[in-house]
Design a protein around this nucleic acid. Structure first.
Length: 470
RNA sequence: GGCCCGUUCGUCUAGUGGUUAGGACUCAUGGUUUUCAUCCAUGCAACAGGGGUUCGAUCCCCCUACGGGCUGCCA
């Protein structure tokens, strides 16, 4: 195989959603694996809905995911004259014709067919007019669309995912390639642009599967080389409906904000509709590039499951170095740990990274190291602090005050003494102290916590809580 | 309506003309751990239905059902 050239071709009518990201990912993986090119084309011909800001959002999201594209971004709107040229060419070579039906006429006909439960086809009234007849209508100033003259026979292609797809051409209507205002339509331009960009493999969502034969007809009408097609199954929401704005989070940006790393998202997305032919599930970008294969892509649509994403995210976090984790936190929140000693921050992250599922969780948990005093939940306090717990905490305070050496064994000794003094198990000692120091009942090991917080802060928090309890 | 595509645990998936239908996530239980998380163990849980073909179908064929896409002067 020559090195492939693939493209991701979003229309800038919204942010980059999860489904688009997966399509982009598979294109990118395929290109990178075969040392080919991954191109980005913005399909901005729908002037009504296309917005400049969405182009930025999409490219930002792709960049953040690390799905870097080659060569300059192609704006479909820039190819206008080329499209017009090709329409003229098809008119010229007889593979297309001017259709003088007005929209309203067709709407009526379509409605009538539907009511009679008949299949609607555009009447062939204008399909084979002579040049003179056409000229006559043009002279009358009648507006027209340009339709592709679908030939007899059948159209067949081999899809890398779906295998051989065959349709009877009679089931295809002569479809419009240029509107009455002269602007070309999607099924036409997509073929022209892909051909002009020398795209070797068209990899896209399977909502385009049914359009593919039409596009092939365009290639053939113009004598262009047909690319290889690969259609990817849809990604669905938990209600099994196509992912849309109705669903919780579909925007890649939202997942970034929730604290998922690009690697985790890419990893999860790759497993939606593809399997690596092994039990391995955790991949970084390099691993995915190495393993990706179209013949292991699923035909069935897949439901997006955030629980599994969380699990994958956590797996990546435990593999991640403390330094990388810190960088991820800074990327998410540049003000994180402002003014604090880098080594101190590093120790904090080291302590909480492996028990977090997302970057956000690390950042949130680290908050308890950033202030002197904490706010406490009333219910929790009243639940935890029995008289005995208060006594233990009071003794803990005294022990801290008398503690001159600050190391782990010293602290462990304090706990041992408290246990002996009050004749209780370690849990009874630990729980009130943990809550006093963190405000919560879970988190890093208590000794590590105390050690890192430092004697000063620990004492301040304990004294503060004791005064509240009073 | 027509055309195209699909259907294995709740979810992501593996798999085979004869298997106890495998793994992962979730969930439950137990163990490890100073808490939590991790980790480990165990458990729950699936071949859409009906016909064929066959000694034998989850697997091959047909039909049905269900889901999705296309059927636009949207992309």
């Amino acid at each position: 195989m020559n090195t492939p050239r693939v493209r991701f071709a979003p229309s800038p009518t919204g942010y980059l959603h999860i489904g688009g990201a997966r399509t982009a990912l598979f294109n990118w993986l395929f290109a990178r694996q075969h040392k080919g090119q991954f191109m980005l084309r913005i399909e901005d011909t729908d002037l009504e809905r296309s917005k400049e800001e969405y182009v930025d959002q999409i490219t930002d999201a792709l960049s953040w995911l690390g799905l870097n594209w080659d060569e300059d971004i192609v704006l479909q709107s820039n190819n206008k004259s080329r499209h017009e040229e090709m329409v003229a060419k098809m008119l010229d070579n007889g593979t297309a014709y001017r259709c003088f039906f007005q929209k309203e006429e067709l709407d009526d006909l379509r409605l009538a067919s539907e009511q009679k439960k008949e299949v609607f086809r555009v009447p062939e009234t204008y399909r084979d007019l002579s040049d003179d007849e056409v000229q006559e209508l043009l002279n009358q100033g009648k507006s027209f669309t340009v339709r592709l003259k679908v030939p007899e026979g059948e159209t067949e292609f081999t899809d890398l995912v779906y295998g051989t797809i065959k349709v009877q051409n009679k089931d295809l209507d002569d479809f419009i390639i240029a509107r009455s205002d002269g602007s070309p339509t999607y099924n036409f331009v997509v073929a022209i642009d892909d051909s002009d960009m020398n795209i070797s493999h068209v990899v896209r969502g399977d909502d385009h599967l049914a359009n593919t034969p039409k596009q092939i007809l365009v290639y053939r009408a113009l004598g262009l080389n047909e690319p290889i097609f690969a259609h990817l199954p849809m990604i669905l929401g938990s209600d099994k409906k196509r992912l849309s704005k109705r669903h919780a989070a579909t925007n890649v940006q939202e997942y970034k904000n929730k604290g998922f790393t690009a690697t985790a998202i890419l990893n999860y997305l790759s497993l939606l509709g593809w399997n690596p032919d092994s039990d391995k599930e955790i991949f970084n970008q390099e691993g995915l590039i190495e393993s990706f294969q179209f013949d292991q892509v699923q035909k069935k649509s897949a439901v997006f499951d955030e629980k599994k994403l969380l699990w994958i995210s956590q797996q990546h976090l435990t593999k991640m170095s403390v330094r990388d984790a810190m960088n991820e936190i800074y990327k998410l929140n540049p003000d994180w740990g402002d003014g604090l000693d880098w080594n101190y921050l590093k120790e904090i992250v080291k302590l909480i990274k492996d028990r977090s599922k997302t970057i956000t969780e690390i950042a949130d948990m680290s908050g308890l190291f950033f202030q002197e005093l904490l706010k406490y939940d009333k219910d929790l306090i009243s639940k935890i602090f029995s008289d005995e717990a208060i006594a233990i905490l009071t003794d803990f305070k005294s022990a801290l005050e008398g503690c001159d050496t600050w190391n782990r064994s010293e602290i462990e000794l304090i706990f041992d003494n408290l246990m002996a003094q009050h004749v209780v198990q370690i849990g009874k000692v630990m729980k009130p102290i943990r809550v006093a120091l963190t405000g919560i009942t879970f988190g890093p090991g208590i000794f590590d916590l105390i050690l890192l917080l430092g004697k000063d802060i620990c004492l301040k928090r304990v004294r503060n809580l004791l005064s509240i309890l009073d």
